[in-house]
Amino acid sequence: MTSWIEIGALDDIPRLGSRVVRTPGGNIAVFRTESDEVFALDDRCPHKGGPLSQGIVHNKRVTCPLHNFVIELASGQAVAPDEGCTHTHPAKVENGIVWLSVRQAAAVS
């Protein structure tokens, strides 16, 4: 069962930007696209662990600030030909509030 946690207002995340949610299992990056969709991923690039939350967001992708790996926000997959995957977490917006469901296994790993 998905248990949703309220994490803040959508307006507190910049469009084409990201904010970090701290958890005991590590940081989770919450992204906001131009059309106000939100996505949540572990804040670690599959390449060398770079903080994805600090990257440039374009369409539904983010570019890692360390070595320009491009990660799909929806799936966490690196865009080909790069390989690797970052754990994703369900996220949604309701009435301007962002909700997150932390997938424990992923967050703890």
């Binding site: 946690i5 803040g8 507190d12 995340i13 910049p14 904010r19 970090v20 701290r22 940081n27 424990q104």
Partner: peptide, 12 residues
């Protein structure tokens, strides 16, 4: 200001 602070801190 938002840039430097986390959006939330969760204790799971």
């Amino acid at each position: 200001r938002n840039e430097f602070a986390p959006l939330a801190e969760l204790e799971l």
